[in-house]
Each structure stands twice: as structure tokens, then as C-alpha cells.
Design a protein around this nucleic acid. Structure first.
Length: 339
DNA sequence: AATGGTGTCAACCGCGACCTG
DNA sequence: TCAGGTCGCGGTTGACACCAT
């Protein structure tokens, strides 16, 4: 199916030149306009994909403008590069993000901000575009639901206290359920689940405030992502340290560090001990309610209201991957009763 | 069934960094 | 050193799918 679309964007994007441009530039721009007019834009056709794949298979990628011309594609080099890197590349990974990947994205974004390509480099097979879209559609949606900015302290607390621990738990559950004992092999990266290693490596973000780390036995690793080294100077636990810790202690830990006022538990029984895990979250949740009812943002009516939001917050993210996951829904009412 | 709202994601754009002659 | 070309990144757009009314 061939689709020829109108160009997206503004007249400037289509090559219109400002009235104040010097004549020589005008001439050059007109030439560019003529060239641009022949360029195909919009969705790629199957034929174009095939042409690009065949050309890169034979000649390799790079020099994208030249490549586009040599391959006979009526596309800009930019467009070819984007199509290849984000879609056609054989190692590109498609489908929903796993809990591990989601956790890693949240953690890395808390440290690096919108450095999508840098974040993508830590998730093999994932593209910066995909991660960016994930952030804008999924993560920011929940910030809107909470009525706060995605960069606000409030939302970061919600991520740190609600979302990330839950994702870590889910990641661990999936490893327990699906992954046999996996050796590290020749991979120089630590044989840790990405999520656990990532959180361990957390530096100067909201997680580090309470300085918890959450990990479990290296024997249940389900994926061997590259573990980023912490960029923060004040991180008390580097990824290298975390590797050693992971191997030393075959346990799940929520370690309370300096000045922490929320997480204050160490769990030695393993991640199966959900009650203890979530009871540790209760003070943080309570604080979240207080801060929300005090800040002119979303007002939670009561615990049920918050419970609903939290479940939507946590489960909406991972439900695609866990259709039969009803049993693992956690009620904040339950958490409250634990206090 | 029609319509409007919302979410998703591929693709585009502008800009700055880097490369090269 | 500098100008033009190229590349890569982050932000934005728009088509389409899906869902609720």
C-alpha cells in the first residue's frame, strides 16, 4: 500500500525561505526546494524498506545522505537513518517493555533526565524514540493523573515509593516464575536483573534520599542488561559494589540509609515476603496523601481514592504484560491495616 | 452505526556538535 | 581557521487504532 502524504510541519519545514534572505541564499534554497519536492515523505512503504535493507546489507550503513542517493531512495539521509535505527535494524526489540526495562527507564531518567539516547544505550534493542514515547505517553499520563508535574518532587516520590518498588517486585516475580538459574557467562556485566542493578546503582535522586537498595539472588537473573555505572559522585553504592553485594547476600533487601524517613526495613526472606515489603511503604504512602492534600494538586478524598489511583498507577503500566495478574493487586487498605 | 476523545507510535523538524576539505 | 556538509539528539506532529458515549 503506497501512501503519499502531505508534508508535515510548517512552511519553513517545507523549505520556504524568509523574505529577508539574501539573493544567493534564495537561489540555493530554491534548488533545495526543487530537490525536496521530489523527496518522498511520510510512512515508508514495504518496497522502500526492502530497498534500504538490501542496500545496508550489502554496503553497510553510515553516510546516510550518500546512502539514500546510492540506494535510489527518494528519502533524506535523515529519514533513512531513522527508519533503519528505529525500525528495520535486525536487533531492534519490539513489544511492550518488561518490568525490568520500565524500572530501568524510570531510574535512569531520574538520574539523566531526557537523555533518551543515553538511556536507550542501556536497554539493548530499544530505541531512544521508543523510550521517549513510553515516557511521554505512559509516565507523563500518570503525572497528569496525579495533578503534578512529571519533574516535581511529588511525582518523583510517587515513582520512588510506589511505582519502582512495585516494578522491582514484578520483575523479581517474573524472574522467579520464568527464569531458571542463569549464569553470568562471559558477559562482563553483572548477572543481575536490570531493575535490581539499576536501583542499586541509584545515585543522587529521590531514591538515594532514603538510600534503599533492592535486590535478590543473582541466580534468578532473567536478563543480562548492561548495568550503567552511577554518574553521581555521592552515590554510596556503585554498580560494581552492587555486584559484590548481590553475590554476597542472596536475599532481598530494603536497606534504610541516612536520614530516611520512609523505608526502614531489611528483608531477608526474599521477595516473596510481600506483606513486609509493602508494609514498609505505608509511611511513605501516608506522607504522599498528606502532601497531596496540602499542595493544591489532586486532592485524595480518602484511602480508597488513593488506593484506586495507586492501582491504576502501578497496574496500568504493567497490565499489558500480566493479563492474569489480578491476584497480585495490592490494596492500600491492606497496607494501612498493617500499621 | 456514528462521533468524539484519547493513546500510541512512526516520522519529521530544528539545532548543535562534529567532521572534512 | 573556517565554511559547508553530515550526523545525532530531543522535541513535536499527525495518522491511525481503540474505546466510550
Amino acid at each position: 500500500m503506497e501512501m503519499v502524504l502531505q508534508p508535515r510541519g510548517s512552511a519553513a519545514a517545507a523549505g520556504a525561505s524568509p523574505a529577508t534572505s539574501p539573493p544567493r541564499k534564495m537561489v540555493k534554497r530554491e534548488a533545495e526546494d526543487e530537490e525536496a519536492a521530489e523527496l518522498q515523505r511520510g510512512p515508508w512503504t514495504a518496497d522502500e524498506d526492502l530497498t534500504l535493507i538490501n542496500y545496508i546489507t550489502q554496503h553497510g550503513d553510515g553516510r546516510w545522505n550518500a546512502l539514500a542517493r546510492a540506494a535510489g531512495l527518494k528519502r533524506t539521509g535523515k529519514s533513512c537513518r531513522l527508519r533503519w535505527l528505529n525500525y528495520l535494524r535486525p536487533d531492534v526489540k519490539r513489544g511492550d517493555f518488561t518490568a525490568d526495562e520500565q524500572l530501568l527507564i524510570l531510574d535512569l531518567h531520574s538520574r539523566w533526565g531526557n537523555r533518551w539516547s543515553k538511556i536507550a544505550a542501556q536497554l539493548p534493542g530499544r530505541t531512544d524514540n521508543e523510550i521517549k514515547n513510553y515516557w511521554r505517553t505512559r509516565v507523563q499520563k500518570h503525572a497528569r493523573q496525579l495533578g503534578c508535574d512529571v519533574n516535581s518532587r511529588r511525582f518523583k516520590d510517587a515513582m520512588a515509593y510506589l511505582w519502582m518498588p512495585r516494578l522491582a517486585e514484578r520483575a523479581s516475580q517474573s524472574h522467579h516464575a520464568a527464569a531458571p538459574m542463569v549464569a553470568a557467562g562471559n558477559n562482563t556485566a553483572p548477572a543481575l536483573p536490570c531493575a535490581a542493578a539499576s536501583v542499586i546503582a541509584s545515585g543522587n535522586n529521590c531514591l538515594a534520599k532514603n538510600n534503599y537498595y533492592y535486590e535478590h539472588s543473582p541466580g534468578v537473573s532473567g536478563s543480562n542488561c548492561v548495568v550503567p555505572s552511577s554518574s553521581s559522585s555521592d552515590s554510596s553504592l556503585t554498580s560494581t559494589d552492587s555486584t559484590a553485594a548481590a553475590h554476597d547476600e542472596k536475599s532481598v533487601q530494603l536497606q534504610h540509609g541516612n536520614g530516611g524517613d520512609c523505608w526502614a526495613t531489611t528483608m531477608q526472606q526474599g521477595v516473596e515476603d510481600h506483606d513486609e515489603f509493602w508494609s514498609a511503604a505505608a509511611p511513605a504512602l501516608q506522607q504522599l496523601v498528606i502532601s497531596n492534600n496540602d499542595g493544591g494538586h489532586r486532592q485524595f478524598q480518602d484511602m480508597q481514592d488513593l488506593t484506586g489511583w495507586v492501582q491504576g498507577f502501578c497496574d496500568g503500566i504493567v497490565s499489558d504484560n500480566n493479563a492474569d495478574d489480578e491476584q497480585s493487586l495490592w490494596s492500600l487498605d491492606d497496607i494501612w491495616r498493617m500499621q
